[in-house]
């Protein structure tokens, strides 16, 4: 089961940047992507670097035509691992590792994130 949690006003995450928030035992990084938000686990699967401090980049090929349609990724500030913000897949280097992603929405100017209960419970149990 998952629940939506009210986090903070949309303005607290600057455009094209990320910020972390501690939700129980999870640390989640929320990104403002100009019109939408994304949320993933804040720790880089490589060495635990703070993904909320990374530079937000495009996530697919070089074509200018598909520019606006391109997805987003974040680059870990420690060693440059690149993580797709939509799927959580690691794009660089080529490893089959995934970062957990969360649904995000903005309700009346407040960012809300959907967090599953199971993990909190499972860990504590």
């Amino acid at each position: 089961m998952s629940n939506w949690f009210r986090i903070a006003s949309a303005g607290s995450v600057p455009l094209r940047e990320g910020r972390s928030v501690t939700m129980g035992e999870r640390e989640i990084a929320i990104f403002n992507l100009d019109g939408s938000f994304a949320a993933i686990d804040a720790a880089c699967p490589h060495r635990g670097g703070p993904l909320c401090d990374g530079i937000v980049t495009g996530s697919s090929g070089p074509s200018l035509v598909c520019g606006p349609l391109m997805g987003h990724a974040v680059v870990c500030p420690l060693h440059g691992w690149k993580i797709d913000l939509d799927s959580g897949n690691v794009l660089k280097p080529e490893v089959s590792v995934k970062v957990e992603t969360y649904e995000v929405r903005v309700m009346e100017g407040v960012i809300e994130v959907k967090i599953p209960e199971s993990k909190t419970r499972g860990k504590a149990a």
Partner: peptide
């Protein structure tokens, strides 16, 4: 600083 959430999930207990 980190974002301070308006709501937090309850802990297991």
């Amino acid at each position: 600083v980190q974002i301070q959430p308006m709501q937090i999930p309850l802990t297991a207990s």
